[in-house]
């Protein structure tokens, strides 16, 4: 073990987990959200199975409100590595015009949580890799690497299966599914250091650049397309901003930053005074237990 750094150990652990799932689970899929954690997951999957391609498809649950640059990056990445990239959109939600401005929490539920459940049912996936990390939030800190969902895709935090050593129990009944988090033990700093070490491509939105935005409810919200209407009193500002996490643009707060290189981002991350999820508007809905509630209902 002595020649392995902290990052080497995390990498080997994630690869081991991915290989276990590919070997034991019937129909796995890797959820791909286009963010930096997904970029790391994809990179790990390419390494784990090389010279074979990852033996499972990738799935992007699209809310139709992602940053334009994210979608471009997704398509470019899929092409570059020859991946089977599935896209799922909740058509009903789209038809009803569900959007983040008018529907708040219902939007997240319908376009993300429900859409994910529909996608898993539609394709019949029995195991789904996610890029969740335990350092992100308190209920995640309690979740196993192999996390089980019942027929309703719900999580029962009080009755998690014991996970001993690295003997993962992947057996499920028909209708159940497993969510697997191979980078559970990584921190935000680990992710950035690994991206730098491995020279992994990420969406340019992570780097500071002059971008148009408005200040809304204390968050820096970027104007990504003309579906976003200005409220009274709001004015479009221009400044160098970047994003610590990526999601739907109306719900993702940016930060003012000069960090336009990986080195600068890492320096900024290591000295950060707030945790990364504070820039996600959706997490502050419903207090400290909101993530656990959503997970119980099937959110990733």
């Amino acid at each position: 073990m002595s020649d392995m750094t902290h990052l080497d150990k995390l990498e080997a652990e994630a690869i081991y987990i991915m290989r276990e799932v590919a070997s034991e689970c019937e129909k796995p899929v890797m959820l791909y959200s286009i963010g930096k954690d997904s970029s790391v997951m994809l990179h790990l999957a390419l390494k784990a199975f090389y010279p074979e391609k990852p033996p499972f498809p990738f799935l992007h649950v699209n809310t139709t409100w992602k940053f334009k640059e994210m979608i471009a990056f997704r398509d470019q990445t899929a092409k570059k590595y020859g991946l089977e990239m599935l896209e799922y959109i909740n058509k009903d939600g789209l038809a009803q015009g569900i959007n983040p401005f008018d529907h708040g929490a219902a939007y997240t539920d319908i376009m993300k949580t429900q859409a994910l459940k529909q996608a898993l049912d539609y394709y019949g996936f029995t195991a789904a890799f996610g890029g969740g990390r335990r350092d992100e939030e308190k209920s995640r800190a309690k979740e196993r690497i192999f996390s089980f969902r019942n027929e309703q895709h719900a999580w029962d935090p009080k009755n998690q299966r014991p996970e001993m050593w690295k003997l993962y129990n992947t057996r499920i009944r028909p209708g159940e599914e497993i969510r697997i988090f191979p980078i559970s033990n990584w921190t935000e700093a680990d992710i950035w250091q690994y991206i730098q070490r491995e020279n992994i491509d990420i969406v340019p939105l992570y780097f500071a650049k002059e971008r148009p935005f408005v200040m809304r409810d204390g968050n820096i919200i970027m104007l990504d397309d003309d579906r976003m209407k200005l409220r009274d009193g709001e004015t479009v500002q221009h400044d160098r901003i970047r994003f610590r996490t990526l999601g739907c643009y109306p719900l993702t707060g940016g930060v003012r930053s000069q960090a336009d290189t990986l080195e600068a981002i890492i320096a900024e991350t290591l000295s950060a005074v707030s945790s990364e999820r504070t820039s996600r508007v959706i997490d502050s809905d419903g207090g400290s237990a909101s993530m656990e509630k959503r997970k119980r209902e099937g959110y990733f």
């Binding site: 350092d135 308190k138 800190a141 309690k142 009080k158 998690q160 033990n185 237990a289 509630k293």
Partner: peptide, 27 residues
């Protein structure tokens, strides 16, 4: 550390919580 709703309600720890920290010397 006690992150689950039931844990906070009951004031006890039910399941393992993982925490990550790095000092100058070690992770």
């Amino acid at each position: 550390l006690d992150g689950l709703m039931a844990e906070r309600e009951q004031g006890i720890t039910i399941d393992v919580a993982y925490r990550y920290f790095t000092t100058e010397k070690r992770s």
